[in-house]
Design a binder for these strands. Structure first.
Lengths: 231, 231
DNA sequence: CGCCATCTTGAGGTGTATCAAACCCAGTGG
DNA sequence: CCACTGGGTTTGATACACCTCAAGATGGCG
């Protein structure tokens, strides 16, 4: 049931399609690591001498502001990579990483990654493409923070995570609600209230299960301008 | 007084240190373009077949949401690059670009950039480093949007742009106030009010001139937790 | 069962947006 | 020289969105 390390590596978009020789080279220095929920993976400002590929579980990237507040920057899950951003430049981490659930990672020395990038051109261009798409995702996040209200962000999040099971469209929250709230830039209490308000807009809440009963209505919440009132 | 095109190119962090052969190659296909303030450079979702280097002026990157709202994603100035993010992947632009002032750009065909990246390894790694730092800047932006209030973001912005002239610390806004507001994720009216409130925290406003009279006080505004009240 | 963490609900406060009006100021044209 | 114009900015009154603090509800788990 558990994924073998090398399978996990090549399942990651960043390493898929890598020459077998390069995979083997990486696997020689890769080490599997496990973390319990809440455990620290690396700290903000620490030397980035390891990058990680997630084999299972969720990892949260966050920053701590001078006044002790915490900003959740991104959430990452299976086969995504963590810590490359600073590792590739041989700098200190520009964010901290913490296990948001039990998770298994593959740790890779950044020195080896850099060396490989210098030799394997295909890998280098893959790295670039990967970074560019991360950048675009950050654009999305900034856009939603600047133009959408909390309700709209929640609605969009729910629709993104909605899956059809047995004819119904249900949303399984990928991680606990307080993390979902931080991810969307609001407080847990607000998330709770927003979910309650969305019951009037195509959402049904039956004891911890979230169901989308009217997709169009929910999409309407996202489309509508905050200036206009939706009752 | 005006910068020659090739000087502009190599002054850009993305192209500095490039082999003379590569510079020459790019200059053969580079074309200078001018825009008046408010003119469109490229549209969101249009094919990204040109990238740009800014020789002078300011460029704003923005997105238009389904409901007609506009989100300012980033501002760029001299020697920064615009449009590479999607050009390198041969995709459509993930944002629109507009001249925020009179500006001169150097337009480069993305096909040529991609070809050069494939051949010149040094350039490829420069591209990656550049993209990574853009990513980190987006992290900064998300952090400030999620953890700081409007007043704190304004204070931080002012301190970032404060310069010492003739013994006084003054802030010259790089572009008009409505753009500063959009950049910080607030409305122009709010920016106006916030500036007025900051007069009690080390800022002086003398008819369109902004002066930092007490840096520590301003920094205190940023440090303090929004929960605590600052009168 | 009782404990604990997580989530919800309520009351009240702060922050920012909205809409509308006044203001400032550089250009323009009489 | 002065009225007129129009964009950008400020100010005011008001509304809404979201936060804070505190109290309850829920649900897993020893």
């Amino acid at each position: 049931m558990t994924i073998h390390f090398s399978e996990g590596l090549i399942a990651s978009p960043m390493f898929s399609g890598l020459a077998p020789k390069s995979v083997e080279r990486l696997m020689r220095v890769a080490r599997p690591v496990r973390f319990r929920r809440g455990e620290n993976i690396f700290l903000h400002q620490s030397r980035a001498d390891c990058c990680y590929v997630i084999l299972s579980g969720w990892v949260k990237l966050y920053r701590v502001t001078p006044n002790g507040n915490e900003a959740l920057v991104r959430m990452h899950s299976q086969f995504e990579t963590v810590g490359f951003c600073d590792g590739l430049r041989d700098q200190v981490h520009s964010y901290g990483a913490e296990a948001a659930s039990i998770c298994r990672l593959l740790s890779l020395p950044t020195a080896e990654i850099r060396a490989l990038a210098a030799e394997d051109q295909e890998f280098a261009s893959r790295l670039l493409a990967h970074t560019l798409s991360a950048l675009e995702q950050m654009f999305d996040q900034v856009e939603s923070l600047k133009t959408q209200t909390a309700i709209q962000r929640v609605a969009a999040f729910l629709l993104r995570h909605a899956r059809r099971v047995e004819g119904r469209t249900v949303v399984e929250l990928p991680f606990e609600k307080s993390l979902v709230a931080a991810h969307l830039g609001i407080k847990p209490e607000s998330l709770s209230r927003v979910l309650a308000r969305l019951k009037a807009h195509g959402l049904a809440l039956n004891q911890s299960e979230i169901e989308v009963v009217n997709r169009d209505l929910l999409e309407g919440v996202i489309r509508s301008d905050p200036a206009d009132a939706w009752a």
